[in-house]
């Protein structure tokens, strides 16, 4: 059975979020993982329009952020890996909530103008990938690339 990964997106006001989400989903999918993306309605619409044919994320594998929290709280779904996108204080709250409700290995993808300050406020048990990316996704992509070299090993690990 394939490993399952959740990408939890926040408010899409920071431009790099959409492309990094598609990039990460693509890398995880190519490694053989089942990827589900949860987010605000606007965040998901950005993905759907950017990936019209569903090459990276199928629209059926997208879920409203409130529904995903409900499903996790009610133990109706679980993941092996969870990537929470954090660029504001609300993102930290969602990260802590996921950490509290799920046994998934947790990654905080921290970006935006306040990336370093936000990273310093996070004390839950997670791995932080931090880059001050706002418009240019490359610094954040590099952080993901450095870590995701292990993604194929994750995909087949017990």
């Amino acid at each position: 059975m394939n490993k399952k990964a959740l990408l939890l997106l926040g408010c899409p006001e920071v431009p790099v979020q959409t492309c990094i989400a598609l990039y990460l989903a693509s890398r995880l999918k190519n490694a053989g993982m089942d990827v589900l993306v949860a987010g605000t309605d606007a965040a998901l619409e950005l993905l759907k329009v950017s990936d019209t044919e569903g090459h990276y994320v199928n629209a059926e594998k997208m879920m409203n952020i409130d529904k995903s929290i409900e499903s996790l709280a009610e133990k109706r779904m679980e993941f092996d890996f969870c990537f929470v996108f954090v660029h504001n204080d609300a993102g930290i709250s969602y990260l802590a909530t996921i950490q509290s409700m799920s046994k998934a290995k947790l990654f905080a993808i921290i970006f935006g103008h306040d990336a370093e300050s936000l990273a310093g406020q996070i004390d839950c048990n997670c791995e932080k990938l931090v880059a001050k990316s706002v418009h240019n996704p490359i610094p954040l992509k590099k952080k993901i690339d450095a870590r995701i070299r292990e993604v194929k090993r994750w995909a087949v690990s017990n």
Binding site: C11, E13, T40, A73, N88, D89, A96, T97, S100
Partner: peptide, 29 residues
């Protein structure tokens, strides 16, 4: 709703009212 937040989440009670944090992804707490 299932409350979002950094534990512990505190809920205040005053008479018959609950006072609680409500987090929105785009608008904060």
């Amino acid at each position: 709703v299932y409350l979002i937040g950094i534990p512990p989440i505190v809920i205040g009670v005053e008479n018959d009212h609950v006072i609680f944090p409500y987090v929105k992804p785009c608008h904060g707490t």
